[in-house]
């Protein structure tokens, strides 16, 4: 129980950090903290394989991609202009608190279908072997579908980020460039 409380406090702290930091880099790093805490919670939930995948794929690959894009776009700082919807924050926070309360309340209405210890044993610790067995028998079709989805995502990402054909871009001549001050050239 102590472990759970500590880990969940860590996860919640990370989550709050994600939404409260003004700097996007800090936000992303806080989220990494939450994800790591969740990975540890997965271990306590008899899901070892998922815990490791969570660390490798989520906290590793996906978050690195995030940080990379933040750095690339130089987008870590929030914009300074006035919020056009000033009434929104209090409403959202109130709604969020009610939602959290309601969800937590419903959570405690849940009645376990069978004794926990008995059920947990059946999971075999969520090792890669048993998980893989389910994945490649009962979930074979979703598995293949997801592989297709990944290909589509790769193609889609390339198509989205691909630049317009060069011809449309007005290239600066060297003469023009020479007349600008360096600050003007930087877009």
């Amino acid at each position: 129980m102590i472990v759970f409380v500590l880990l969940s406090l860590l996860a919640i702290a990370g989550a709050l950090g994600t939404i409260l930091w003004k700097n996007a880099v800090y936000s992303a790093l806080s989220l990494v903290g939450t994800l790591l805490a969740l990975a540890c919670i997965f271990v306590t939930l008899e899901a070892q394989f998922l815990a490791s995948v969570q660390v490798i794929v989520y906290a590793g690959a996906i978050m690195v991609l995030f940080l990379f894009v933040i750095m690339l776009l130089n987008a870590q700082y929030p914009s300074e202009d006035v919020d056009p919807l000033p009434w929104l924050s209090p409403v959202v926070i109130a709604g969020g608190v009610v939602l959290a309360g309601a969800l937590a309340y419903t959570a405690f209405l849940y009645k376990a279908p069978k004794p926990l210890a008995e059920a947990a044993k059946a999971l075999q610790g969520g090792a890669p072997g048993p998980v893989g067995e389910t994945l490649f028998t009962k979930f074979l079709l979703p598995f293949e579908a997801v592989s297709l989805l990944l290909i589509i995502a790769v193609v889609g990402a390339v198509a989205l980020v691909k630049r317009e054909p060069e011809a449309k871009v007005q290239r600066e001549t060297l003469e023009e460039r020479a007349t600008h001050t360096p600050e003007e050239v930087v877009v």
Partner: peptide, 9 residues
């Protein structure tokens, strides 16, 4: 409950 709180955040 923890998941609900994280979701709300």
């Amino acid at each position: 409950a923890l998941a609900g709180i994280l979701f709300s955040i």
